[in-house]
Write a protein that binds this DNA or RNA. Structure first.
Length: 769
DNA sequence: TGGCTGTACTG
DNA sequence: CAGTACA
DNA sequence: GCCA
């Protein structure tokens, strides 16, 4: 493309080319739009893998008839069979006697739950479409206009362009939370413009004033003398990272935030001490919230409720100066702070796994020694033998983690290590095999032990971020979220490509059955276990012999339909039917399609509709409307079943949820879609008054990990987020959950809730976690 | 050892 | 209240 | 399951 024109700036050009090559030639400028789409596509494909394994299967077929695991698993060696898994034989009975899944899990730490092969599709790949313009909810949108708003500041003419910029997927946003100020601070120069774009796509904000910046990017060739005056003009430019333009470029290339202290980035720019910067402080909960800096968050965090420690990543990883320390000068510190700035990412990491974390140099990384090490370790882990050994490991790991967090040198080393391997794409992860097996484990624990499930997911995310294969437990232990047990499994997988627990579990027929039962709507682990222990094997058995609740009956009768994914077009078609019917009842009512649809997915498990109307203050206001709507749609034959409505449930002014089934009428079936076949779909309706729309959107958009993360974050700040709003001054009575509701802070505006939480806005499609 | 999101509906 | 479900 |  026009790179040729850039000849004058050869040095830059080379760099730029490198970036572009590395990104499959997306041109920074002209092809930007195009490229973006490509990237997004890639992203969705990539991330969909990581998103919730719940989605049953890769294909419709897979879904309906849970097949066998495709993954070739060597026959388990039966002589080994006596490991923990065996204990499980009794499980169903045991289990049924126990109340909750959690209880089960913790009482029998070593007992593996059963595992079910079919649900455990290694790689459910829901397709996500991106090209589809996201539905633009009329009401919401007015508040959230820009696709990318990571430019906090005002807009100038030159920034119009920015409005069109689209962020890369979150996991590529290495600059998230950082604010870049360029010298010169314009995009007149093509190369710089490209750099700015790239930085912004990766989460950086391009700020107009030095003051706002966390990073000052100085054009190559300028020296301290040149920029001195700029820097002087801002008395508060302390603790900023000042680097030359190579820095962001290298970060982009290496896909990680590098240590900005390296000589090559500061050459000629280093001057001396940077004065410390007192950052203006603001409480997130306070009205001014939006631009809190890290330090602020730290402070306020200290004073929240009982447990308000920072999440580990925030606190220990980078946070020496947590306390009253002035954010000191060290650029590294600053960067660390900036890194941490998107707390939501942190919490997502906490909840789901991807902690913000740097690849560590794997000491003694002798691949050649792998087989040897393997042997040893196998002996060791196989019998769980030495406690000494394990505790020793633990100790070491702790120490290392501390190091990582507190020593600049470690940071640098990590980065350096990183640089070494610019390997092609992180797409084909060296740990893919491991991840796949662990993913199967997740599948097995699903609905059974949420916490364990979560831990596995977390481990998977950590592995996914590695660029080298983790082969030993020792290495694995260093990763956040991986403890002794998972480390041992990882090692086992690396060593002989199998995971015996998994295989055993997979072999147990009860597991298959259990998994089958769990897919029935209204059936959870308790009921499924009961049925299994009562000897039921098939859905037929259940249908004929078991005692079924109304919902379960429906779930079984329409098992195949309800487990089939809904293509995006059909989601739209279904919504259209509802809208049309609604138009006759009350044309001022609005509908927003939420769920994975709103996140841009190509297909959804169900259809989530938010029903809202201007000038409503309570969902009660919409109740009469909904009743009419339901009646109408039922009469039309569109709604085929009610699974959960709100019968007498008018109590707390809530009662706002309707779950049921629907079928696309043939008249609404597009001709180009082949032959019509009525398929029952799950549909969820949520009544939302205008005053709660923002919170409801967050809730109904998800995904679940995202919701948990953001709620966790809120709670750590002494706030509470639910589907109706963000509340403050929540009193949480220790045990009895005796809390006061808290004072409503915000509910109406989705963006505002993010702001009040001190979290950067994320578009729905950026909420796949 | 306890926490890991916060809520709504069913029976 | 426990169980299940929703994101 | 992991972590504090």
């Amino acid at each position: 493309m026009e790179e040729r024109k850039l000849a004058e700036k050869i040095a830059y050009f080379k760099r730029l080319s490198a970036i572009q090559a590395e990104e499959n030639g997306d041109d920074a400028y002209d092809a930007e739009e195009q490229a973006h789409r490509e990237r997004c596509k890639t992203f969705h494909n990539a991330t969909s893998t990581s998103s919730r394994a719940k989605s049953p299967a890769p294909s419709v077929t897979g879904l309906r008839k849970p097949g066998t695991v495709s993954q070739p698993l060597p026959c388990p060696d039966s002589s080994q069979g006596s490991d923990d898994l065996e204990i499980i034989k009794v499980t169903p009975r045991n289990r049924s006697s126990r109340p909750g899944a959690a209880g089960i899990a913790d009482k029998t730490p070593n007992v593996e739950e059963e595992i079910i092969p079919e649900s455990a599709h290694p790689d459910p790949k829901p397709a996500h479409s991106f090209l589809h313009p996201l539905l633009r909810p009329r009401m919401t949108r007015q508040t959230s206009g820009l696709t990318s708003d990571n430019s906090p500041s005002t807009s100038t003419a030159k920034r119009k362009k920015q409005a069109r910029l689209k962020l890369l997927p979150e996991n590529q946003q290495i600059f998230r939370g950082l604010r870049f100020y360029y010298i010169p601070n314009d995009d007149a120069n093509r190369v710089r413009a490209a750099q700015i774009t790239k930085a912004r796509e990766r989460g950086a904000s391009w700020v107009r004033t030095l003051k706002e910046a966390t990073h000052v990017i100085v054009d190559e060739g300028l020296t301290y003398q040149d920029i001195k005056s700029d820097l002087m003009s801002d008395s508060s430019s302390p603790g900023k990272v000042i680097v030359n333009a190579n820095y962001p470029i290298d970060c982009v290339i290496h896909r990680i935030l590098l240590n900005p202290n390296q000589e090559k980035y500061v050459r000629n720019l280093r001057v001396a001490e940077t004065p410390p910067s007192p950052n203006p402080s603001s409480l997130p909960a306070s009205a001014q919230a939006s631009s809190n800096s890290l330090e602020i968050k730290r402070k306020q965090r200290k004073r929240s409720r009982k447990d308000q420690e920072l999440p580990p990543e925030t606190q220990s990883d980078y946070g020496e100066p947590l306390q009253n320390n002035t954010p000191s000068i060290a650029p590294v510190t600053t960067i660390a702070a900036a890194l941490v700035e998107d707390e939501l990412s942190q919490y997502i990491g906490l909840v789901q796994g991807n902690s913000l974390y740097l690849e560590m140099p794997l000491e003694e990384e002798e691949d050649s020694a792998q087989s040897e090490a393997t042997k040893d370790d196998e002996a060791e882990s196989g019998s769980e033998s030495s406690k000494d050994e394990s505790s020793r490991k633990k100790k070491r790991r702790t120490r290392e983690k501390i190091q990582l967090s507190q020593e600049d040198t470690t940071w640098q080393d990590s980065f350096a290590c990183m640089k070494g391997g610019t390997r092609g794409a992180a797409v084909d992860n060296p740990n893919a095999a491991t991840i796949e097996l662990l993913q199967l484990m997740v599948g097995m624990y699903e609905h059974r032990d949420d916490w364990r499930c979560k831990s596995y997911r977390r481990a998977i995310t950590a592995l996914r971020q590695q660029t080298r294969k983790i082969t030993t437990a020792k290495e694995a232990m260093k990763l956040p979220g991986i403890g002794k047990s998972l480390a041992a499994k990882i090692e086992e997988i690396a060593a002989d490509g199998r995971l015996r627990k998994l295989e055993h579990a997979q072999q147990r027929p009860e597991n298959k059955i259990l998994n089958l039962f769990l897919k029935v709507y209204g059936v959870g682990i308790g009921q499924a276990n009961k049925w299994v222990s009562q000897g039921y094997r098939t859905l037929e058995d259940l249908r004929e012999k078991a005692k079924l609740s109304t919902n379960q009956r429906i779930g079984i009768e329409h098992f195949d339909d309800l487990n089939e994914r809904i293509p995006r077009w059909e989601v739209e078609a279904l919504a259209a039917v509802v809208r049309e019917a609604a138009g006759d009842i009350d044309a001022s009512v609005e509908f927003i399609i939420g769920g994975s649809y709103r996140r841009g997915s190509d297909s959804s498990g169900d259809i989530d509709l938010i029903i809202t109307k201007k000038r409503t203050r309570s969902s009660q206001n919409l109740l009469p409307f909904l009743e009419k709507l339901i009646k109408r749609l039922t009469d039309d034959g569109f709604l085929t079943a009610a699974l959960a409505s709100f019968s007498g449930n008018t109590k707390k002014g809530h009662g706002s949820k309707w779950h049921g089934c629907c079928v696309l009428p043939e008249t609404a079936f597009p001709k180009d879609k082949g032959k019509y076949r009525p398929i029952w779909r799950r549909i969820d309706l949520l009544l939302v008054p205008e005053t709660e729309l923002g919170a409801a959107l967050i809730y109904f958009t998800g995904n679940d990990i995202f919701n948990r993360s953001i709620r966790l974050l809120a709670s750590k700040k002494g706030l509470r987020l639910n589907q109706r709003g963000l509340f403050k001054d929540v009193l949480r009575g220790k045990r009895g959950v005796t809390y006061t509701e808290g004072d409503p802070l915000e509910g109406r505006d989705e963006k505002r809730i993010f702001e009040l939480l001190g979290v950067k806005w994320r578009e729905p499609h950026e909420r796949w976690c």
